[in-house]
Design a binder for these strands. Structure first.
Lengths: 184, 184
DNA sequence: AGCCTATATATGTCAAGTCTTATATACGCG
DNA sequence: CGCGTATATAAGACTTGACATATATAGGCT
């Protein structure tokens, strides 16, 4: 359901083809939302049927015609309705935490391996995000400020994850040592 | 696919019925993983078919018989394989960030409303998590340390979210003021 | 010469998860 | 006395999303 609204959101910014939309998703919201290409086209079809979007066909000689989708007044209304609707408690899915929860079986060494792998991934992501962040100019308006904020959110949470991993690594080492000593 | 492994993980801790498993999911990993009751039963069926789990039927006079599921050696092997497998980059879904990305249309006042709603939810969650955390004894072994760590992860990220929201609130107010002054 | 990528849309299939309903009994609350 | 909750399992319908594949051309890389 959010994909539908996200597509409306992008179309409110600028009319786009399905192909364009896929680029927009991959380019600017990838870190907190992904969209499947096939799903985008299906959603566009629904939006047209529902009268929230109109299609302008731009013929191209060599390639498939561009079907540029424009948001309608009804579409904007639905978008605004979504933006202003109450927040629904969304169910988080963190596969890493799930694994960690059961990872005691691996023993301390195995857990350290998991932690380090996770930390490496987080370091990479932090580097990528800060690199993107460094290229951003100071936001001139609210819209840009918000987009920048979503980026900062990712950076802060990634940093928090790294901090937590560092502390956990220490704890696991200590706990393991203690446990070994108890065995003696 | 993770649900399958999580079920194996719980069964490795203690034999359980589908009903028990639902309670375990809701009770201890709810904050980072959810499981649908119907899905749990379907997964249990698959695990039995695959020989990773055996069923012990305990008749009950009044109620439906308890079908206690026990993990097999093959099941433990599969669990360990999962625990030690490389981490797959999981796609994050943050509906709030998606909304914020497009929320410029709402104007500063509307965005502040979104931020405050999110902050209220996060405050509530932080209170709930810290309350649970306060009841936990110091972990005696690795398994308990890891479970406590997943709780700490939630607390830290929730705190980070609150910090970010506070800063964002300030930024939105400032940006809005600047923008208004520019309009004059 | 062959392969990959980019541009552009579309269908088919499958897996996974969500929601609803069904069946049975017992206990506590108002 | 009815309603919700707890105990227990299970099937059905439905939605979403993920992945593969098809079509068509052009340009660049190896």
């Amino acid at each position: 359901m959010s994909l539908r609204n996200a597509v409306l959101g992008f179309l409110a910014l600028t009319p786009s083809t399905g192909y364009d939309l896929k680029s927009h998703f991959d380019g600017s919201v990838r870190q907190f939302w992904t969209a499947d290409q096939a799903q985008i086209y299906r959603v566009l079809g629904q939006l047209v049927q529902d009268g929230l979007v109109t299609v302008e066909v731009i013929p191209q000689p060599d390639r498939p015609d561009r079907k540029v989708h424009h948001i309608t007044a009804a579409g904007l209304a639905e978008l605004d309705g979504w933006l202003a609707s109450p927040l629904d408690a969304h169910t988080v899915r963190e596969p890493f935490l799930l694994r960690l929860f059961f990872a005691g079986r691996l023993g301390a060494a195995g857990v350290i391996g998991l932690i380090d792998a996770r930390a490496a991934a987080a370091e990479g992501q932090l580097a990528a995000l800060t690199a993107v962040r460094a290229q951003q100019p100071n936001p001139a308006d609210l819209e840009r400020a918000l987009r920048l904020a979503t980026l900062d959110n990712g950076i802060r949470h990634t940093q928090t994850e790294l901090d937590w991993l560092r502390d956990l690594r220490g704890t696991v080492t200590t706990t393991n040592t203690t446990s070994k000593e108890q065995e003696r």
